[in-house]
Nucleic acid binder design. Structure first.
Length: 271
DNA sequence: TTAACTACCTGTTCGC
DNA sequence: TGCGAACAGGTAGTTA
């Protein structure tokens, strides 16, 4: 499930190989994946050939291929999406929904569950205006989060998953951040004290930075742009460790469903 | 405005 | 062994 560190890992690699490359053909684009933007799948396929990649951007969990025309192709990987840069003679995987042919290599989107999305964003249009602050930018401060959590009754877990507050966190990194900050995921957001929020901000940054250094977390679907799994799953403290011993106190990690999301935490370490 | 719920989707796991 | 049900979860839309 690609969250910010996984998407950033893909972006980082693609930004080394894609700029300057010209789209030769759009070999395949699944209309069911085009769920946003100003053009249909057919129109994107007609428009793209000849376009040259200028840069690869990321905002939250969204990736953008910026063209020299300053239009953008939005790609979201959803739950199970993979975006790979691969030689064009390699056979297509099952569930391949987008194939951009750059003559020698192809950029392919593979997404078994089809929760991902593709869209065309015209030049000058704001990319994803509804997204909240970038957690690794200077905009995420404890003062910002204090303000956003004030008076909120929803569990802190749900509020951290809300992309309009902080963009890029998903189930894994919210659980990990809350563990590091020693905060239970079912606490109402508005009940957090300023010192806890300060700790939470520090934890979010550290968890995300470490996950990027480990090239993301691979449980089932995620691989980077070269098809390699990440390593961060070896460093997780709570996520996916139901009933395992807490690495800090030795008590069993427990799970609880909060707003439809399985949350992992330690009853002893998190208050 | 906020909180909770639902649809989308398919591979995997579990129980019978 | 095979089948069906339940589960996993990010986003956007709906409802109260």
């Amino acid at each position: 499930m690609p969250e910010l560190p996984e998407v950033e890992t893909i972006r980082y690699y693609l930004d080394h190989v894609l700029p300057g490359q010209k789209v030769h053909k759009v070999l395949h684009i699944d209309p069911r994946m085009v769920k946003t933007g100003s053009l249909s799948a057919e129109e994107i396929a007609r428009r793209l050939p000849g376009h040259v990649v200028k840069s690869i951007k990321r905002r939250g969990k969204f990736l953008f291929l910026e063209w020299e025309t300053q239009d953008h192709l939005l790609i979201h990987l959803g739950m199970s999406g993979r975006l790979i840069w691969i030689q064009n003679h390699e056979p297509w995987a099952l569930h391949t929904h987008l194939v951009l042919d750059f003559e020698e290599n192809q950029l392919r989107l593979i997404d078994p569950r089809r929760f991902g999305r593709i869209g065309w964003i015209d030049r000058g249009v704001e990319l994803v205006p509804h997204l909240g602050t970038e957690p690794l930018s200077a905009d995420l401060t404890s003062q910002f989060l204090v303000k956003r959590l004030q008076g909120r009754q929803a569990p802190i877990k749900s509020l951290l998953l809300d992309q309009s507050i902080i963009a890029g966190l998903g189930n894994i990194y919210v659980d990990e951040s809350l563990f590091r900050a020693k905060i239970r995921p079912d606490r109402p957001g508005g009940s957090l004290e300023p010192r806890e929020i300060k700790r939470l901000v520090r934890s979010i940054r550290r968890v995300l930075q470490e996950a990027i250094e480990h090239r993301g977390t691979s449980f089932s679907d995620y691989v980077d742009a070269l098809g390699h799994p990440g390593q961060n799953q070896d460093y997780l403290m709570v996520y996916g460790r139901n009933q395992a011993e807490c690495r800090v106190c030795g008590q069993p990690i427990v799970t609880k469903v909060i707003q439809g999301r399985t949350s992992h935490f330690c009853l002893h370490c998190q208050k």
